[in-house]
Amino acid sequence: MTQTVMECANLWKIYGKIVAVKDVSLEIKEGDIKLIFGPSGSGKSTLAGCLAMLTTPTKGSVFLREECLTEPGVDLNKARARIGFVFQHIWLFHHLTARGNIELGLRRVMKSPKKEARERAMQALREVKMEKWAGHYPAQMSGGQQQRVGIARALAMDPEIIILDEPTSALDPELTGEVIDALRDLAKKGTTMLVISHEMPFAREVADEMIFLDEGMIVERGPPDLFFTNPSSERARKFMARLIKRTRRE
């Protein structure tokens, strides 16, 4: 039986009067690729942040393997090192080169010796086809290239799961392809991933399960085919119709 990598149970995140995440439970097994989508403001990013413990959930629990991360006294730094995170707005460290961005975590968190960190960083850059850009600073790269470095940065830490929060939505349309290709490669290698994305062809191709989120709640979930042929909820149907129309236009 495949093992559960990450799980959340009855997760809530409330900001003042706004309920961003409402009673969400999900389970991600080893090798799973789950895709979360939904209208903007539906709580996707907040949910991703809570799972990575970059945002503290208001209620409910998050598990990484058997360890409960929402209990007091857990070493969150250690837990975060095991969870890869790719940000919508990329957030590379501006003062470091592509390679430096990757080496930082390896050196300071994993305590790898300099030489090993460098080799691992170069290997991660090769995996996203960015090895030629190792010595360049983020400001010298295109958005798509930066995001590929962002993926390599998460990848190099050998995380048990990678959470990607809309990795292509801040990019120009012509740059999304290269990032999607990098993600496709990851999928082929059996990386456990939770992806927030509206790239529907990609979703259909790689996702094991799609989860439709609206107003902080899971409205509908199931295999991609379900969503592409006949979603049962009205909201999901409307949203899918809009997305597919948009994809065709592009």
């Binding site: 090192a81 940000f87 957030w91 460290f93 003062h95 300071r108 968190v109």
Partner: peptide
Amino acid sequence: KDQMTAGLSLGLSKPQAIMYIVLPQAMR
């Protein structure tokens, strides 16, 4: 603040993130 968040996501502690990410940028 996102530079700090990105640092934390890698598993750096807050003092480490200040030391290796925030200060080098701030000094410049």
